[in-house]
Design a protein around this nucleic acid. Structure first.
Lengths: 240, 240
DNA sequence: GCAGCTGTGTGCGATGGCGCACTGATGGCC
DNA sequence: GGCCATCAGTGCGCCATCGCACACAGCTGC
């Protein structure tokens, strides 16, 4: 039964990690907007006009090859922001950014982001650490993709989604998952069916519920833990 | 904006892209060292004491899973530097960094790098753009790994190696390539044999020669072009 | 009620990568 | 010369994945 609901702060954790002064400085430039499932935030090659700090929405970064052969290379939720390349001096998006989970986000103009990231030292460092965590998650994903079983990867992906959306049920079809994991839908059907048989999840017609999170964590490859650690590490103070 | 560029024959192109003033400022802190095949530059989790700007050496970044199941997630040669995470505020290496091609590199202390990247604006931006290009290459690699044929990927990998090592022959075994591409050596044997039959390369006992570079480029997946463009883009002035 | 769309469940033959177990060839070292 | 380590080449059975085809179930609109 869908029992646990994650008690997540109703906001973006990256912004939440800022010292009060820096956050207040940014606040006037942040506007709350809705991101709806299926919306494309950035098209490959397009100029990044806004960056988004998701609250309970999720944005997926997709490899920018063909339309049909897609693969998720990054997942962005309340722990991060879209358009990190802006702070690295690159104003065009390489990947396609697609809204995977409907919800809200705080929007900021890229130009304002560049301006403020120069001015606000902690903010700047925080964003760079986040960029690093995204990069590390990509390299983990590279290996995970190659070495681990699909069922474990799906479990990992579901957990990551739950972490970011902050709810144990969300809209999700097998078709969509097959695009994220870059496999055929039939295979998703099979492994998702297994997860359901094991009473870890249940799903019907475009709707997934996490039933047993610890069990799912147990079934997921260790990449889940590694990626989670990475994304949490980005939020901490960087003095090492 | 930078007008004067130092002529650095056989040098590191990232440093070469610096305006003269900034480079002269860095020069005393750079020490030329040899990197030899098989040497491990960073072990996963270890503190990054030095960063390296390869001249004609190559360093491979490997996914830090098991020892046996390895996979290259990044390749660093004269277009870049090792230890980019330092400029992002992270002083530990996640991946394993392994010297893939013997040669020289300019070495710098991480602490000095942090200090100077704060002081030298162009340098800072350059390094960030490079970090971005590495990140993009990872995301391209993720998709390439998943969708493209091994023979094409091997061709791409050989071209990337040649670009960085600056020579059409280099030390290289099938075993090593199998570790980079995360496949069995037997498969490398097969596809490398095909490339040899097509007179694109030749090899004997740990030694590869590129015979027909245009032909190889033709056979490689388009990811080669995309990655090359990415790594060159990092070197250019970032004002867009 | 019925049509049409979307999402899920399933089968089957072809293919390709994996694991393993070899052989052969070359070069260095004693 | 002879031994041994390293590197390359090959065969074979197994299993995962692919590509395609089709059945069915629920929801929506007319």
């Amino acid at each position: 039964m869908p029992t646990t609901r994650l008690a997540l702060p109703n906001g973006n954790r990256l912004l939440g990690a800022l010292p009060g002064g820096e956050f207040r400085r940014l606040q006037p430039q942040l506007k709350e907007v809705n991101l709806t499932f299926g919306e494309i935030v950035y098209e490959p090659g397009a100029t990044i006009r806004y960056v988004y700090f998701p609250s309970n929405s999720i944005v997926s970064l997709l490899s920018a090859t063909d339309q049909k052969a897609t693969l998720e290379v990054g997942m962005i939720g309340n722990e991060g922001m879209t358009g990190v390349s802006v702070i690295m001096g690159v104003n065009q998006s390489r990947p396609r950014a697609l809204v995977q989970g409907t919800g809200t986000a705080l929007r900021m103009e890229s130009a304002a982001l560049r301006r403020e990231s120069v001015r606000l030292e902690y903010f700047h460092q925080l964003l760079l650490r986040y960029a690093h965590s995204l990069m590390t998650q990509m390299s983990l994903g590279l290996a995970c993709n190659r070495f681990h079983k699909l069922e474990d990867r799906l479990a990992r992906w579901l957990l990551m989604t739950q972490d970011r959306i902050g709810s144990d049920e969300f809209r999700m079809t097998q078709e969509f998952m097959s695009n994220m994991l870059a496999v055929r839908r039939e295979r998703v059907n099979k492994v998702a069916g297994n997860l359901q048989k094991r009473n870890l999840i249940k799903y019907t017609r475009g709707h997934v519920t996490i039933l047993n999170r610890p069990g799912l964590e147990n079934g997921a490859c260790y990449c889940y833990g590694a990626m989670k650690q990475e994304s949490d590490a980005g939020l901490r103070n960087g003095k090492q």
